[in-house]
Design a protein around this nucleic acid. Structure first.
Lengths: 258, 258
DNA sequence: GCGCAAAAGTCATCATACAAAAATCCATTT
DNA sequence: AAATGGATTTTTGTATGATGACTTTTGCGC
């Protein structure tokens, strides 16, 4: 009964065909390959390009329509919705890669993620909960193998946003996360300290608190755990900025004295 | 801009068959006729009970699954999700996808504003605190003069976002607020009930709690007050959507009998 | 009883056909 | 020549039947 998720380390869900199609079209829409208000290829064309039946295509389009990304009109075609991408476009446009901006964006992301953790604790279903656990254990596995954990970290947060059943949370996270990823990933100056084992162990410990709160269905605890995690990440980010500053100062001084 | 539907009083929506089925099943789920974790009737049975093709049934089930209410398992059946938020299911029950999107956006805005209230309590400077107070008393003045308070309400929230000293918060608020404004402003269908004096008095009372918490520098209290305010607004929004639905149903019935 | 294979039930996908609405084309009319 | 109106085509919505994959249950042999 309730022990279904107890021992399920790997969930190995069957990726339904329609979901892959949804992902593909989503990517195209986010890349702006089809402008808002414009018509998508017809169902017939899509069946050809993706090599699946019209049933699958229709299911995928229905899902996109449910998320408000497209809008089918009988006899006319399927059209890209206006407002969504413009919103994200506006946001994504004017944040560069400056550190001060990154900190501000991180702060907005904090707001989004705290609330999404709380909602995930309430609204998640079994599959979504399994998805979060899966990402958690993937992080664990990579950590033991000393492989880069960045993607798994992102996947963990993304799974939580997805468990809110509000598609805007995950979209928001995608847009914000692409610009300012707090933890590690491929920032050119965070190669050594940030990737240390104790550092990542600490991350995982914080993740566990979040995971426990969500599986327990405790929204308040989930929010608090996520807040603690992200404020700690914020702090680590600041420290790294400071460390880089010190490093530069030292190198400048060394160059002057030699 | 968004007033394209203002002059078209009649519902120009063709209710897709699947949407009818979705509404029906949603109502059943909400009524608790099928307990969480239990299996729904099979697709074949549903085709009989609703008198539509299996295509429609599948589309409806896919939509319910997209909202996280049910969870299909190949070879086993379609099961009701364990942790369903009755709130969400209820509010998305019988409205078009457009309103459902608006509610999702509103939910994101809730996340942003809660955190911004907390930050404003900590980071505000004297001028910003004065700005928040000014907006508050402007609302009061308009209320006494029976003038529309919409802009002042928006200004109050904007002043709080501005007091975070993080420009992204106010920008976020602008982008989100332009799409889905929860309070009142110029929604074409919120002319009477929503503008009542007691309604706006209630808003102002909630505003006061927020203002007090911010001026006291109590971030936790500010967040809680803002959360209370916005969830209450969400509730009011829901009720208005429902009222509109009833209105349309009445007008349709009247048109049929005349 | 227990284990295992067969069978039935169920969702996922495919293929085809027709209906309905919109867009386009074209002929008729002004 | 321009405009109007209807016929044709395109495209989504719905219906139907069939097949495969997966899950659950049943039944059989031991």
């Amino acid at each position: 009964m309730a022990s279904d998720t107890a021992t399920s380390l790997k969930v190995e869900r069957k990726p339904k065909l329609s979901e892959t199609v949804v992902a593909a079209i989503r990517k195209q829409l986010q890349a702006g390959e089809i402008q808002p208000g414009q018509k998508l290829p017809t169902e017939g064309q899509l069946t050809d390009t993706f090599g699946v039946s019209r049933t699958v295509i229709r299911e995928a389009l229905a899902k996109l329509a449910a998320d408000g990304l497209v809008e089918p009109r009988q006899g006319a075609g399927v059209f890209v919705t206006e407002h969504i991408s413009t919103m994200f476009g506006a946001l994504a446009a004017d944040m560069g890669s400056k550190d001060s901006i990154a900190l501000n964006v991180l702060e907005v992301r904090l707001a989004i993620e705290i609330e999404s953790a709380g909602l995930a604790a309430i609204r998640r279903n079994a599959a979504q909960e399994a998805g979060i656990q899966e990402a958690f254990f993937e992080f664990e596995r990579l950590l033991l193998n000393s492989e880069p954990t960045g993607p798994a970290d992102l996947a963990f947060h993304r799974a939580i946003a997805s468990a809110t059943n509000n598609p805007f949370y995950v979209e928001m996270l995608d847009v914000l996360g692409r610009r300012a990823i707090p933890c590690d990933v491929t920032s050119p100056w965070s190669t050594e300290l940030a990737q240390s084992d104790v550092y990542q162990r600490g991350l995982q410990r914080e993740h566990l608190v979040i995971l426990n709160a969500i599986t327990a269905g405790d929204a308040e605890a989930a929010r608090e755990a996520m807040r603690a995690h992200l404020t700690a990440s914020q702090q680590r980010y600041r420290e790294r900025l400071h460390a880089r500053q010190v490093f530069y100062a030292d190198s400048v001084r060394a160059a002057a004295t030699e």
